[in-house]
Amino acid sequence: MNITRRATLAIPAALAAPSLRAQSLTKMRVSVIPVLDVAPLHAAIREGYFAAEGIEIDTSTTAGGATGLPGLVAGQFRVVFSNVVSIMLGVREGLPFRFVSGASKGKDAPPDILALLVRKGSGITTGRDLEGKRMASNTRNNIVWLRGMAWVEKTGGDWRRVSTVEVPFPQMADALAGGRVDAAIFSEPFVAAALETHGDKLERIGWPISETAPGGTNAQYVAMAEDLAANADLFDRFGRALHKGVDWVNERAGQPALLELIANFSRVPLARLQKTALPAYPKGVTPAELDELVATMQRYGLTGTYPASAGLIHRTARV
């Protein structure tokens, strides 16, 4: 996989920037999760945008966000893709994370990248019905969980009375269909997969993002404050290349080329991706979206003192 990625990176780079010395590429290791949100990063790698800025990206896939942020603190990664709640919890604990770029947001109207599914015939349609029931989330205290709790409250339920069970996304459909949980918050492409394979047993009852915070923030790229201060120029180049990747993706919204790119890095079958809802791909991070998020976190038990959000946004994300 690594070999082919380097090869595909080298060819367009040679065409785009013939004057560039191959040895001058700065290696940057980026932690990613194999999800739809990282499409712009892979587009920028494949199209040679990073190579044109003198950067070689080495992606490292982790199964969940859990190993990414500690790896950033330990100096294993220069940049980490992570969900915004995990990032802000780290910031609250005093870790010097700074936003380098936006990654994904919900769209203003359905379909969302998150969906709440229940068994057909269970009679559960609102958060109120979920009180005293078991709801699956991939992790507790992340953006998926937070949006799910907000949905419960929005539809008349008390989030404290819904018990959360941690189930990894790939196992959620089986857990739900098998009656091990009563509801589950899925993220794409697992929504599409669950409805494709368990469509006779499962149904969607809610859109946790567009029903509670339309266009709500979801995930970003972060780096360490000291690294950003010491290597501001490198990160400027990183931001430029990544944002060209964002443009590439946004220009091809709904086109087969984008789905082929995603199928390539995520290995999700193309046929399933055609039924999958994609997020919005923003370049920047705004203080307003972070303030909204922190207010929501405070409301659902993730209380504490968070630093002013404007100071957390590096200049590459102020676009």
Binding site: P34, V35, P170, P189, F190, S266, R267, P269
Partner: peptide
């Protein structure tokens, strides 16, 4: 091991 995780996430 990584192949296993990627395929799990891809639902394959």
């Amino acid at each position: 091991g990584n192949y296993l995780v990627v395929m799990q996430f891809a639902g394959r």
